[in-house]
Design a protein around this nucleic acid. Structure first.
Length: 848
DNA sequence: ACCGAAGA
DNA sequence: TCTTCGGT
């Protein structure tokens, strides 16, 4: 549905497009699109496609396309380093700008090229003037545009798979800021992309806290005395700079005084020149689309209207929910309820509402996790009452990447009898439909006994967070930064040029073209690879290679961990990750914003990195991890006597495998032989074939095949297990884990051998990896419910696939560690023991 | 094999 | 979107 309808505009809105953003995005997103003579057309294509969609769906009357001009802007005059690290426009993109402007002209769209200011400034200035007369929709993704939000100004990004609309209201509920405070906020936090440093150690949480107390930088300066001593020392050295930073972020609202809205009127009376233009650049699909749109005046909203719309009641008389099926949608602070064909709106969550809903038979919601975050009162509704629509869909097909309500609704639209503008009634109906499907697939126990109860545990873990040692982070970062600076000069010298070492493209050019090193490995895309594996093989060819490898590891450390993490801490220096329970095809959790499941552990810097994650004063971290859980599951499922025996005796499994493979006593196994056995053990869990194994072990294809054959003849029951999994996958088109989790693998019966082979590997890996995920999820529930852990004041902080990290009062740490291992090893009764290793420490490194 | 983040 | 690299 168009924005006009959704937002109920009464006057024609004007759309202002941040052209530069889309031009760049298109350029990187579609690197290979070219005309047959080689002229690059990728950026043009993306922009034109975006406009086509916008014209078709929005039917705008006024639209302006704004591009950055060439020269420097006033911001460069304010600060030299501004956007210094951003490269100048690549040649392949620059050549597309003129033709693009020409095309837009023929399309009847007004373009504005900014000079001395950036495109965003033009957008802000025009929005500021036009908003008095009509709604303004800023089309773009730059977060700095949020400062323009107003009752009549909207920010919209339709280019992603899921469009993003920010209104004044949604901004307020999400940000706890007024749009006008955005520049003040950015000045404190900094912005790496624009090279605005911000204040070290001040992340979003701190900045929001400060702005809550002092609404502007001026107020902050004037009230400086009222800050705590710690805050004063942190802020003092930067108090002058932040005013400059704010000027860089603040968009101008007073340029383009001579533009009037009438100039932005779309004029598509004659499209023939534009169609010729599309021909000239070989945009055939776009031409078809425009020719079609030109021919018929479409009027369809594109939305299938089933059921009749029911006007929602503004509820102060509560409906009787007892024993009924209910659907619920959260809208900002408010709540929308649907039952028995009626919808009710409430301004906020309240005790009486929660009590009424608690008597329902079931409440279908798009995401239970969101509900629990919405208000603490929701915890009072019995867990068994909730029905999580996203979760249900995930269990039915874990390979959809999008479990948003809209996607699911549209997928089921054929079977819905509700109006799309009655989302709560729709949710209720979807709940009914999906319940039937879950029953048919035998997913109810998995849903009710594992996945749904896990959600409040995940929320607790996220809210607990884990504490960072900020001093240690700062010292670490300073060291790494200094080494990086030294390496940069060394590399430029050794290579004989300066270039962007972070760019694999430029690096490949320098190494393989300029220095004449012969590349051996290729990327999946067919270009010469500069990965660690590829570079290590070339280490002898040139001294610069080793410097580059070292630069890579340090840069990774800096950019992924050392720099971003301290910015995310709250008042107590704790970071709060998101544990996503609908993210993986195998049933594992994933962690993001920040990802705490890939914090380095190995190598020169791993222990030091994990040492920066600490327990709060008076507490210890207790970490417990399953030992070889996936191989143990393989042992249990295959019933292979060698594996069962090795685990029963708690032997070194890789050494034992090596002994079988090389026909030696386990004591006589060499390190290299153990390494090979380890690689093949892991490889087979991934369903790895001989090519990949050979590559990893440096063997020829023939040797690798023999090696695998030897493995399977020694571990014959593993072989039969593999073929059984494959057979079952063929027969059902899916595989199932111990807890009844299912992954669909339609490709396993494909005539395309590659696809079938890929599906075969997924089948094996999913059974093993997914079952391991079931085991630890069950353990998490048991840990959460354990009275002793509760009594000792333990809190669960992290899950890293086979590991749990708890924070515990120091005096109880040993007791908790012991209890934890008992719980974790006891969740499933397998044919092998589930061994658990654990440790205690003041930080995560020690606890290992 | 399964992820997420950063950079271009 | 692709490449790379950190984790399991």
């Amino acid at each position: 549905m168009s924005l006009k309808n959704r937002l109920g505009f009464t006057r024609e809105p004007v759309y202002l497009i941040d052209g530069s953003a889309f031009v760049y995005r298109g350029f990187y997103a579609y690197p290979d699109l070219k005309r047959s003579d080689g002229f690059p057309t990728n950026a043009m294509f993306i922009v034109l496609r975006l406009l086509a969609k916008l014209l078709r769906e929005e039917k705008p009357a006024y639209l302006g396309f704004v591009l950055d001009g060439k020269g420097p802007t006033f911001r460069h005059a304010l600060m030299e380093s501004y956007k210094a690290q951003r490269m100048r426009m690549p040649e392949n993109l620059a050549v597309q700008i003129e033709p693009l402007l020409e095309g837009l002209g023929k399309m009847g769209i007004a373009t504005i090229v900014s000079h001395g200011v950036e495109a965003d400034d033009v957008l802000a200035s025009l929005a500021n003037r036009f908003k008095k007369d009509r709604p303004v929709v800023l089309v773009g993704a730059d977060k700095d545009l949020q400062q323009c939000l107003d009752e009549n100004v909207y920010l919209w990004d339709p280019s992603m798979r899921k469009e993003k609309l920010v209104t004044l209201e949604s901004f307020r509920t999400h940000q706890d800021l007024v749009p006008g405070q955005w520049p003040d906020y950015q000045a404190l936090v900094g912005d790496k992309a624009d090279n605005i440093p911000g204040i070290p150690g001040v992340g979003p949480k701190t900045a929001l806290g400060l702005l809550k107390r002092f609404p502007s930088l001026e107020a902050l300066r004037d009230g400086f005395e009222r800050l705590s001593a710690k805050e004063q020392t942190r802020l003092k050295p930067h108090m002058e700079d932040i005013f400059l930073y704010r000027e860089l972020t603040r968009l101008k609202t007073d340029c383009c005084a001579d533009h009037v809205c009438a100039q932005l009127k779309i004029n598509q009376e004659d499209m023939s020149a534009f169609l010729d233009f599309l021909d000239a650049y070989e945009f055939h699909s776009l031409k078809r689309e425009f020719a079609r749109d030109d021919a018929r005046d479409t009027n369809a909203s594109g939305h299938k209207m089933t059921g009749t719309f029911v006007e929602p009641v503004h509820g102060e008389a509560l409906p009787d929910c007892a024993g009924k099926q209910v659907g619920m949608i959260l809208e900002g602070k408010g709540v929308r309820i649907g039952l028995e064909g009626r919808e009710y709106l409430f301004d906020a969550c309240s005790m009486s509402l929660v009590t009424a809903l608690g008597t329902a038979q079931s409440i279908a919601v798009p995401s239970l996790k969101d509900v629990l975050y919405h208000h603490r009162l929701w915890y009072l509704v019995p867990l068994g009452t909730w029905f999580d629509i996203g979760l249900a869909e995930y269990l039915l097909d874990p390979e959809e990447r999008n479990y948003g309500f809209e996607r699911i609704r549209d997928g089921l639209s054929g079977e819905l009898d509700t109006h799309p503008e009655n989302p709560a009634l729709t949710a209720c109906r979807i709940g009914e439909l999906l319940t039937k499907r879950l029953e048919a697939g035998d997913f109810i126990p998995l849903m009710r006994e594992l996945e749904l109860p896990l959600i409040p545990v995940l929320v607790k873990m996220e809210q607990n967070g884990i504490r960072l040692d900020l001093e240690a982070f700062a010292a670490f970062l300073a060291e790494v930064q200094e080494k990086l600076d030294q390496l940069t000069t060394a590399i430029y010298q050794e290579a004989g040029t300066t270039f962007n070492i972070r760019s694999s493209q430029q690096l490949a050019e320098v190494l393989f073209d300029r220095l004449g090193i012969v590349s051996r490995k290729k990327t999946p895309g067919g270009k010469p690879s500069t990965s660690v594996q590829a570079l290590e093989a070339l280490a002898d060819a040139h001294p610069v290679i080793n410097s580059i490898l070292r630069y890579r590891t340090l840069e990774k450390l800096r950019s992924t961990y050392l720099e971003p993490l301290p910015k995310l801490v709250d008042r107590e220096n704790r970071v709060h990750t998101h544990f996503n329970n609908l993210a993986t095809a195998t049933g594992r959790l994933s962690s993001s914003k920040p990802n705490l499941q890939n914090i380095p552990i190995r190598g020169e810097f791993g222990p030091r990195m994990r040492g920066c994650f600490i327990a709060r004063p008076g507490y210890k971290l207790v970490a417990a991890d399953y030992s070889q859980i996936e191989l143990r599951i393989l042992a249990h499922m295959s019933k292979d006597p060698h594996l069962l025996d090795a685990f029963a005796r708690n032997e070194d499994i890789h050494a034992r495998t090596a002994a079988l493979l090389f026909d030696k006593e386990p004591e006589a196994i060499q390190a290299d032989e153990r390494r090979k056995a380890k690689t093949i053990n892991f490889g087979l869990l991934y369903g790895m074939g001989p090519q990949k194994l050979g590559k990893d072990l440096g063997l020829t294809l023939k040797e690798a095949k023999e090696f695998i054959a030897r493995y399977f003849s020694a571990l014959a029951k593993v072989k039969t297990f593999y073929t059984d999994v494959e057979k079952r996958a063929r027969a059902h088109g899916s595989v199932t884990t111990i807890a009844g989790r299912r992954r669909l693998l339609p490709d396993i019966n494909s005539r395309n051998a590659n696809l079938a082979q890929q599906a075969r590997r997924m089948a094996i890996n999913t059974v093993v990896q997914g079952s391991a995920a079931d085991v630890i999820k069950k353990a998490m529930l048991a840990v959460d419910r354990d009275p002793l852990l509760h009594k000792t004041g333990s809190r669960i902080l992290l899950q890293v696939h086979d590991e749990l990290v708890l924070e515990v009062p120091a005096e109880n740490a040993i007791e908790v560690g012991e209890r934890l291992t008992v719980i974790m090893s006891g969740v499933y009764d397998l044919d092998v023991p589930l061994a658990v290793d654990w440790g205690i420490g003041d930080n995560w490194a020690q606890a290992h």
